[in-house]
Simulated scan of single mutants.
Amino acid sequence: MAETHSVPVIDDESVVATRHYAPSSSHDPWFVCCHGFLSDRSGSYERRCRRATAEGYDAVRFDFRGCGDADGSFADATLGSRLADLEAVLDYFDPPSVVLFGSSFGGKVAFHAAVDDDRVEAIIARAPVTYNRAFDDYRAVVDREGECRFDDGRYVDDRFFEDFDAYSFDDVVDALTVPTTIVHGREDASVPVDDSFEAARRLETDVVLRAIPDEGHRFSSTAEEKLLDSTFDRLERLEDG
């Protein structure tokens, strides 16, 4: 069963979240998805949440402001606003604890959220943005043209990078304590897989990194199934101690 909720965030703006109920919940942490930069809660996130409920996890997927069905403008959205959106969703549903699944830019959200939120028990990151250099091409366009506009008309400008620069992955390295799983395609042309290798080397917590051959930033159906299998196998191992 799934229910859709409007979750208030700030200044009369809300995000839209879908909660999936496990038929028989056997795990305390909920499985909460953070979508990518230009994405939303639909598609693969529904598949991931349905797999989570089949494994006994209650699950939530939601749209960050400026994306999907949420209020707000994409141009006004920042990493800071996405962190506030995630916090609002967790406060609204009030799970006992959470596993954060973050894809691409949602992985960066998950990493920085886990540093400050004791409810986070583990991170699963698919092709995550870790180091800010992954957005250097966007930054160069903003520096040159004043904004970086995408194919669908959405754009970012200086406001995004002024906020972005306040969040260094060094802060995550220094503070992250929860078990972390990173799954990344070796042929990713959007977020370099080398960033994930470097992040995994530097993190001082329990880290598993899986680099999938012949996969780019968008996973094939086969790679997605491998991602889900490894995700829930890893969570089961963590739960068993």
Rank of each mutant, 00 (worst) to 15 (best):
S6W: 09
C33V: 15
R202C: 08
D171E: 11
V193P: 10
T181H: 12
E3Q: 12
D195S: 04
A223L: 00
E147S: 15
L227W: 01
S42K: 08
R50D: 07
V142I: 03
A140G: 02
Y131Q: 13
A17P: 07
D137E: 13
D206I: 05
T53K: 07
D229Q: 06
F64P: 03
P96W: 06
D163Y: 03
L86R: 04
A199N: 08
V193W: 11
V89T: 11
D233P: 00
E187D: 15
F150N: 02
R51M: 05
V193D: 06
I212L: 15
A52E: 06
D233C: 01
D229T: 10
R186Q: 13
S190T: 15
F219T: 01
T177F: 01
T53N: 10
R149W: 01
L38W: 05
D40Y: 12
L235S: 12
S73Q: 14
D63P: 13
E204M: 04
D118A: 15
T205Q: 06
T180A: 13
F101A: 00
V142S: 06
I212S: 02
P179F: 02
G146K: 05
D240L: 14
F64G: 07
F232M: 02
D165T: 04
V178H: 03
D40W: 05
Y155C: 04
D117W: 07
S24A: 13
I124C: 06
D94I: 01
C67I: 01
L90D: 09
S103K: 04
R47V: 04
Y138V: 07
R237H: 11
I212T: 08
R159P: 00
F74I: 09
A199C: 04
V15C: 14
D174E: 15
P192R: 05
A134E: 07
R201I: 01
E198P: 01
V32I: 15
G146W: 02
V9P: 10
P23Q: 09
R234M: 01
A59N: 12
V173C: 08
A77N: 13
V193R: 07
V142Q: 06
G66N: 07
P128V: 05
Y155G: 04
R186H: 04
A75H: 12
A59R: 10
R154P: 03
T4K: 10
S220Q: 00
V129K: 03
P8Y: 03
R119N: 09
S26W: 01
A175L: 07
T231N: 00
R50S: 09
L228I: 03
R186V: 07
V207D: 06
A134Q: 11
A84R: 15
F197M: 08
E121V: 07
D76R: 11
D157V: 06
R133W: 12
R47I: 02
F64Y: 15
F31L: 09
H217G: 04
F135C: 02
G146P: 05
D91N: 14
T181M: 13
A17T: 07
Y92C: 06
F197T: 13
S44P: 00
T177I: 02
E147H: 10
L176F: 08
A59C: 09
E87P: 00
E87V: 05
S73P: 01
D58R: 10
E55Q: 15
R48A: 13
F101E: 00
E224A: 02
L176G: 05
D157S: 12
D151T: 04
T181W: 06
P192N: 08
V156N: 02
L228R: 01
F62A: 09
L176V: 11
R210L: 03
A59P: 12
N132S: 13
T180S: 15
D91R: 14
S24W: 03
